[in-house]
């Protein structure tokens, strides 16, 4: 399995080097994409200095946690998002007869993946950690990688669930788009600004709040925590991520057993 995974990365990097201009353009897009989100936050908080007690420095850090988890997900598990496409054109049937686990087979399909977004995210996270005045001690250095990993697993779990739904409904573009939007736009702000229903949804149904809000509340020593949970729940991200991924994987296996294909 490890050997296969190594090959996967070798091909990815070689592909990226082969299409160099295209790679550079996509790297530029990653900068514009995250840059415009951060610039929007900056402009808004330039006019309105406080959002529920969070200022721009806090929000920049909040975005950094999400961005890093998201970039790590896109780097490692990008292929999962392609499952609906594979199901549609019948490519998925071919993966079913691979000797290794089907989800693993999906993940190791090479693309033009290069860890440019991840590098960008790590640099940005480093800068905002300093900028937001987060105390960097041994505990912080130990916890942050786990929190990031937890966020990555949460995103992976959601994508596995959406991919599984494609076994039945084939075209899930609409659903995928809406889930993506929920994640990217609703994680940008402290969830305290949302109605109680949305907060509960982002905490317990699709636990995106564990990607950045709860950990940020803990690291920034924010007094309030939405839903009255103690700030230390922020450190539970990896546990939430693993649990959620477990549920998602069980659903994936359930779907796989009933997978019929679209008839090619």
């Amino acid at each position: 399995m490890l050997a296969v995974y190594g090959q996967h990365w070798r091909i990815n990097v070689l592909t990226a080097l082969e299409y160099r201009e295209n790679f550079l353009l996509w790297a530029a897009f990653a900068v514009v994409y995250h840059g415009s989100a951060i610039a929007t936050l900056w402009v808004v908080l330039h006019t309105f200095p406080s959002m529920n007690g969070w200022d721009f420095r806090d929000m920049a850090f909040l975005y950094g946690l999400w961005m890093t988890a998201h970039a790590l997900h896109d780097t490692l598990f990008f292929g999962v998002g392609n499952v609906p496409e594979y199901v549609r054109d019948g490519e998925f049937d071919r993966l079913l007869i691979r000797p290794l686990d089907t989800l693993f087979a999906v993940i190791v399909i090479p693309g033009q993946i290069f860890p440019d977004e991840l590098i960008l995210a790590l640099v940005y996270l480093g800068i905002t950690t300093w900028y937001a005045g987060v105390r960097v001690d041994a505990a912080f250095v130990f916890c942050v990688p786990f929190v990031i990993l937890g966020g990555t697993l949460i995103e992976l779990a959601i994508n596995v669930i959406v991919a599984t739904i494609a076994f039945w409904f084939v075209r899930v573009d609409a659903l995928r788009w809406i889930v993506l939007q929920l994640e990217q736009e609703f994680t940008r702000y402290p969830i305290g600004i949302y109605t109680r229903g949305v907060r509960l949804f982002l905490t317990f149904v699709f636990p995106f709040a564990f990607m950045n809000y709860f950990p940020a509340t803990y690291f920034l020593h924010k007094p309030e925590s939405a839903l009255g949970l103690p700030p230390a729940v922020g450190l539970l991200s990896p546990v939430i991520g693993l649990t959620f991924l477990g549920v998602a994987y069980a659903f994936w296996r359930f779907g796989l057993d009933r997978y019929k294909g679209v008839g090619h």
């Binding site: 309105f48 959002m51 600004i193 109605t195």
Partner: peptide, 10 residues
């Protein structure tokens, strides 16, 4: 929700 939160505190 975003604008309401911003106008409430500023």
């Amino acid at each position: 929700m975003v604008w309401v939160a911003l106008y409430a505190r500023n």
